[in-house]
Design a protein around this nucleic acid. Structure first.
Lengths: 116, 116, 116, 116
DNA sequence: GTGGTCTAGACCACT
DNA sequence: GTGGTCTAGACCACC
């Protein structure tokens, strides 16, 4: 994975993991990668991997069992919440930018029809 | 203006200035704010303001006349270039995110119709 | 090192580093001095050292790994490019000056034979 | 005339004027341009033009007569001195750079034969 | 007044 | 320890 040098790596990986959840690559209750393996997968430092799980835990997305590892929460509402948060943030910032760039609704509809 | 703490200030102001260009708040050939005034406007340090102009100059968006100030370039192609760059970046990242979040083309079209 | 007061320090150090590359004091892929050590070596401020690496990075001469340091690029074409750029600039400005000072080709050849 | 943004303008104009002397565009005893006209000729600020004459005066290259203007000195030794100074500086810095870039005497002779 | 450079010192993300 | 950003404040060349 290529990182955007202008955004903290841990935020970029967190986004990636959330998307894995939405896409079903990661299921409720699943055991997650060890911080060590997460570090290997993304070629990042183990400390950074640790931070990622710490942040996800704080958002209620995962929890840690001593000696067992880190697991995705069982909370069935969390998926929907993540998706809504990410989608609305993505949509809002997209709309804001495109509006500032002077794109009309028709142009946007056309672009999506053409490119998506 | 409020800054997103996760993105360097100078990049956020650069984006803002580019949008001012697109929106016509800043015209080709215009004298831009002095670095000191730019610093005042965005409540940033004059050095940071200087860096902003340095980066914009390097992108060919403005040029500097010693002792006179910084001016928007006269290059008429630059506007289009900026707009295309910013739009395609915005569109690409939006599409990527929405696809990963599982949105279909129809859903996107509906969202834009409803909310934009 | 002694700096020419009429030329920005960062440009003089950049020139020095490029020459180190040409002379093989610095090899492709090498880890470069940390900004702090570069600052010590040239008795300059760490910020100035940072700027030097930023400019070199932009010229494609080095790249940065977060938390690891700055490294000379692996691009094998860069050496030749740097050498050609520096040489042609040096030659052009030399020829221009000497011509304006009234030196003929024969005089230049004799000077080089005698002094180089 | 195009200025190198990294060197003070007044130094660049001084060099130009010295070369005019060497080339005979400006003769011993000649009345020089008024600061105002010098400013016009080089598209610089009158204050900068004033500084240029001040520096040249300090080097003994010209002198000022109140109400009459600025004149090239009559000192016949000055021409030779200027030429030698500029030539030796140009040669020294050229040799230094080319040596650092790894050019041999033969390569230099060939380049001069080809290009000068 | 204008931007450019430089120093000093701080905080931060990442290794 | 690594570079990146930011602030604060200074000096300079040029207008």
């Amino acid at each position: 994975m290529e990182f955007d040098n202008n955004v903290p790596i841990y935020l970029q990986v967190i986004k990636e993991i959330k998307q894995d959840l939405i896409q079903g690559n990661l299921l409720l209750g699943d055991k997650m990668l060890s911080t060590r393996d997460l570090a290997l997968k993304y070629q990042i430092n183990p400390n950074t991997a640790g931070r990622i799980y710490r942040e996800l835990e704080q958002e209620g997305i995962c929890y840690t069992r001593r000696g067992l590892g880190t697991f995705v929460t069982d909370d069935t509402t969390i998926l929907r919440k993540i998706q809504e948060d990410m989608a609305s943030e993505s949509i809002d910032s997209f709309f804001l930018t495109m509006r500032k760039l002077g794109f009309s609704k028709e142009e946007l509809l056309r672009i999506i029809n053409d490119k998506y």
